[in-house]
């Protein structure tokens, strides 16, 4: 397992108290794996993604560990973290279209960045050019200013720059969100291409849109209100989700959900809770159609089937009765 995250907590310090945006998450990602990270807006996806590379201003590493390629990644230590950035962990940020300095040519900016990291630009220039061509950008992009490119081109340029030093872990935050459907597909395929060519080992693709993940992700992790809700391989999540939240997310998507006739699609009623003072017990409880007494306690994130983890009392109960049923029938005979 190349990336292991163990009970990670990342909080924002605000005047009104701590926002527990990532509140104890545990999972791992294998080499060559593309993991989708999905959930509604405000569930802590970006905080988790950013937290793995750069804790800015108000962000605090409140607990837990991250292991990358068998070594601890010192995410809470800004100084120690510096050498890992770009080389072993990298990010395509949510704001990728505005991530490039408007007054520097793209090649020059990349050279400045690499120089400040102690990398000789000339030694990677040939590879840089190759990858620029690979993502379908014209060769003269290096000589252009960001404002001379379309938003989609800027984003692809950012993808190439972020992965230039072949990081072990790449985080792509809402990379497909602002794009039309066909461009979304193309960008999604670029993640697979980068993985297949070994430019990156493990990839986290953050999105609030499950349909794109169904096409490109190997596994999907569903987050809700700073906690993990469900994780399984992509097909299982799409075809056989166990957490009521995942089920509702899928039902709100006509492309992937089974029932086209339910259009016009509506979001899930209600909103995620505030993470300033999150509710006790299951955080999805007040929006959950099948909540029951046990849900006032926090459900554990457990593996109910091989490779399929869920944090839901109802799912646990169903799994138990499913396991008990054949035994009961056998006893009746």
């Amino acid at each position: 397992m190349s990336v292991k995250i163990d009970n990670l907590q990342i909080y924002y310090t605000t005047l009104r108290g701590e926002v527990k945006a990532v509140d104890g998450v545990t999972f791992s990602i294998g080499d060559g794996e593309i993991m989708g990270l999905a959930g509604e807006s405000g569930c802590g996806k970006s905080t988790l993604g950013n937290g793995l590379i750069y804790l800015e201003g108000r962000m605090r590493h409140a607990g837990g560990h991250v292991t990358l390629d068998g070594k601890e990644l010192p995410i809470g230590d800004a100084k120690a973290m510096e050498q890992h950035r770009l080389r072993s962990v990298s990010i395509i940020p949510q704001y990728a279209m505005s991530a490039l300095n408007p007054t520097r040519k793209i090649g020059r900016m990349t050279a400045d960045l690499l120089k400040s990291r102690g990398v000789d630009y000339k030694s990677v220039l040939e590879e840089f050019r190759r990858r620029v061509a690979l993502v379908g950008l014209p060769a003269d992009v290096l000589e252009r200013y960001p404002f001379e490119l379309s938003g989609g081109m800027r984003q692809r340029a950012t993808m190439v720059i972020s992965t230039l030093l072949n990081p072990s872990l790449l985080i792509g935050d809402e990379v497909t969100s602002a794009l039309d459907v066909s461009t979304q597909r193309a960008v999604g395929e670029m993640f697979m291409e980068f993985r297949d060519r070994g430019y990156v080992k493990s990839t986290i693709v953050i999105t609030h849109d499950l349909s794109i993940l169904a096409q490109i992700a190997d596994t999907i992790l569903i987050m809700y209100a700073g906690k993990l809700a469900e994780k399984a391989d992509a097909q299982t999540i799409v075809n056989n989700p166990l957490h009521p939240y995942t089920q509702q997310l899928l039902a709100s998507l006509p492309e992937v959900g089974l029932r086209y006739d339910e259009a016009p699609l509506v979001g899930i009623p209600g909103r995620p809770p505030s993470l300033l003072d999150p509710p006790k017990g299951c955080r999805f409880r007040d929006r959950c159609p099948v909540a029951f007494e046990q849900c006032t306690a926090e459900p554990p994130f457990v593996e109910l089937h091989p490779g399929h983890q869920v944090a839901c009392w109802k799912a646990i109960q169903d799994a138990q009765s499913f396991n008990e049923e054949p035994a009961a029938q056998g006893a009746g005979r």
Binding site: R85, I91, Y95, S98, A99, L100, D112
Partner: peptide, 20 residues
């Protein structure tokens, strides 16, 4: 701004970010 955050995320030196 976004470009400064991006540079910091990729470990660019303070000097470079300030210069920009």
């Amino acid at each position: 701004t976004d470009y400064a955050r991006y540079l910091r995320s990729l470990g660019a030196s303070q000097r470079l970010v300030r210069r920009y």
